[in-house]
């Protein structure tokens, strides 16, 4: 039995540890020990699901030791984590009852497998996001439309390119220490074929030996390349980047062994990271801060 100690603070900066470990081929029996988790954000939750799903996909039996901290357990419940996790993990510990739908959650963890799921996400976000974007982030009332467009395009990326299932989740936080203001965190992850494999047939030849996860990410992220010959395609990620930049937000995409980011002034992430341990699919994180 392999045991992986889940970081005590599992947010967008710590998820690589989870993904790096789970991407290793040949792990059959894996225990994700989350007993000491004290803080987790949507990136952390969805990364755990993705990691467990990958272990299971490889024929393994992932187990998850639930956190000791009741606040963390309650939050996982409110975010709908256990609804998704029961199909992936053997859960060790007492699963709290699902909280009522009247919670502070912006968008619970939602499985994305078909376009109908994207419609469901947009319907849900329409009901809840407007107030949060205006009151917490100080965005104009109409920003819920652009926010919904971002979510729609980023979720469609799973359906159209990943050829595998994925998840989306959204929540607002007060980043008092880190940034001194509220942020909205969007996470979208899948364990499909990733950018390199999606683009390979159409574009790898022109890159020759340079073709790899980082060049595939650059091709899609910076140049809007897509596997479809249709010139109307490929604008989703470009327009997401543009809108995120307007809101002074950050967006990062990890796929395979690489990660690419659009980094605002308030963040210190590297624009491109290569040489990560391989993990299938694509993992997207978007952080939108309140206006100063």
């Amino acid at each position: 039995m392999n045991v992986f100690s889940v970081p005590t603070e599992l947010d967008y900066q710590a998820v690589d540890q989870v993904l790096d470990m789970a991407g290793q081929v040949g792990i059959e029996h894996m225990l994700f020990d989350a007993r000491h988790v004290r803080w987790i954000d949507p990136n952390g939750m969805v990364a755990l699901l993705a990691a467990g799903a990958v272990v299971k996909k490889q024929g393994g039996s992932p187990r998850l030791q639930l956190p000791d901290n009741s606040d963390v357990l309650g939050y996982l419940s409110r975010m709908g984590f256990f609804h998704e996790a029961t199909g992936i993990f053997e859960l060790l510990g007492r699963v709290p009852k699902r909280a009522s739908r009247l919670s502070d959650v912006l968008l619970e963890i939602t499985s994305i497998t078909a376009n109908a799921d994207v419609h469901t996400v947009i319907d849900e976000v329409q009901k809840r996001a407007g107030n949060v974007l205006a009151s917490r982030l100080g965005y104009p009332a109409t920003s819920v439309v652009q926010f919904s467009v971002i979510l729609s395009e980023v979720c469609q990326n799973i359906v159209e390119h990943a050829e595998g299932s994925g998840w989306v989740a959204v929540q607002a936080y007060n980043w008092t220490k880190r940034l001194g203001r509220y942020v909205v965190v969007i996470t979208v992850m899948d364990i499909g074929r990733g950018f390199r494999h999606s683009l390979s047939a159409e574009h790898s030849a022109r890159y020759g030996d340079r073709w790899g996860d980082s060049t595939a990410l650059e091709a899609a992220f910076l140049h809007g390349l897509t596997r479809f010959p249709d010139s109307g395609r490929g604008q989703g990620i470009q327009q997401i980047r543009r809108q995120v930049q307007r809101w002074d937000g950050s967006i990062t995409i990890r796929s395979g062994t690489a990660r690419i980011a659009q980094v605002p002034e308030w963040d210190i992430a590297d624009p491109v990271v290569d040489g990560l341990k391989s993990f299938p699919g694509a993992q997207i994180s978007i952080i939108l801060p309140a206006v100063k």
């Binding site: 376009n115 109908a116 419609h119 947009i122 319907d123 329409q126 919904s148 467009v149 729609s152």
Partner: peptide, 11 residues
């Protein structure tokens, strides 16, 4: 379905 927003390419 009852969805009314003009989102997703198949729609």
């Amino acid at each position: 379905s009852l969805h009314s927003h003009l989102v997703t390419r198949p729609t």
